[in-house]
């Protein structure tokens, strides 16, 4: 399953970055596909990007509300929030695990042999602050004299933008190097920190900083496709705790907002068929429910 997931991640990475002519055009894609919302974090100023980044678009629309209202245009970001809502209602953070190019990059970096560290659960709240304050409130409040605002997250933080767009654009258009300054070096430092952190810890950006992950995480409990725990089969062996790349204790909180449905707990850990996939409440590949109060026989218990 892990092998299949990697291929799906690569496929989504290629689909959202399908403008492979960019080395010749030396610019970004400007076709009609850019009206499609990228499910994962993928900068739309990336030369190969063929979809729009929901985080970037939302900030730009929110930052321009005053200007658009003065032009009798009622742009509140509803189409972006709606598109994200549809994706979130269907898959929640499964998108992080299966369709986010920056998530894939972090996973690949984490495979580099090194000493590994855990991430404190308290740091997970950082991404909600990022979503609320930096992505939503700052563009609304911190406006200039013309009534416009900056895409604060993209401008000052987003390491995906630096990696996928900033650095490639500098290579494709060397004349841009004359415009780089403290802002760029600051973002480069954030990118390098995140990449190094990804070697030492699993998906640090997704867990602590990603506003898109925060949005999908809020919808994790209500999503259509999710993992289900059969409490009558769970032996509390905690095997699912050890394989989760997001630090989720699945049997203690099956609706954890951090769960990216990578299925590691289902395929690598649980030997008791206590975890299954459900769609809208209906189990798929379901196992018959064990009557309440029936214990799993000792012979079937996890061997440690």
């Amino acid at each position: 399953m892990e092998f299949a997931r990697k291929w799906v991640q690569i496929l989504f990475g290629l689909l959202t970055n399908a403008n492979w002519a960019f080395p010749f055009t030396r610019s970004i894609y400007q076709g009609p596909l850019k009206v499609i919302c990228s499910p994962g974090l993928n900068c739309y100023s990336c030369p190969s990007s063929t979809t729009y980044c929901p985080v970037g678009s939302l900030q730009n629309i929110l930052g321009g509300i005053k200007i658009s209202l003065s032009n009798n245009q009622y742009f509140f970001g509803l189409s972006v929030i709606g598109a994200l809502g549809v994706l979130g209602a269907m898959f929640g953070r499964m998108i992080c695990g299966w369709a986010c190019p920056f998530g894939l990059i972090q996973e690949l970096l984490h495979k580099i042999p090194s000493r590994k560290f855990s991430i404190s659960r308290s740091l997970n709240y950082g991404k909600y602050a990022m979503l609320l304050v930096v992505v939503i409130l700052f563009p609304l409040i911190m406006v200039d004299e013309f009534g416009g605002s900056s895409p604060w997250f993209c401008k000052f933080i987003c390491p995906a933008g630096t990696l996928e767009a900033g650095l490639p654009m500098l290579l494709l258009q060397p004349n841009l190097t004359s415009t780089i300054g403290a802002l760029f070096y600051n973002k480069l430092a954030i990118l390098l920190s995140v990449l190094l952190w990804s070697v030492a810890a699993s998906r640090p950006f997704c867990r602590t900083l990603c506003p898109l992950g925060a949005f999908y995480g809020l919808m994790n409990r209500f999503r259509m496709v999710k993992l289900k725990l059969d409490e009558t089969r769970c032996t509390n062996c905690k095997a699912c705790h050890h394989v989760c790349p997001m630090g989720v204790k699945f049997n203690e909180n099956p609706d954890d907002p951090e769960c990216i449905s990578c299925l590691a707990c289902l395929h690598k850990a649980c030997k008791f068929e206590a975890i299954s996939i459900e769609i809208g409440g209906m189990p798929i590949a379901a196992t018959p429910a064990r009557p309440l109060g029936t214990n799993v026989p000792d012979s079937a218990k996890y061997p440690f």
Partner: peptide, 17 residues
């Protein structure tokens, strides 16, 4: 409006300029 933004290289978005 989204297309209009997505068709332009957002230099401030990527930390350049």
């Amino acid at each position: 409006r989204v297309l209009e933004q997505a068709w332009q290289v957002c230099l401030s978005c990527i930390g350049i300029g």
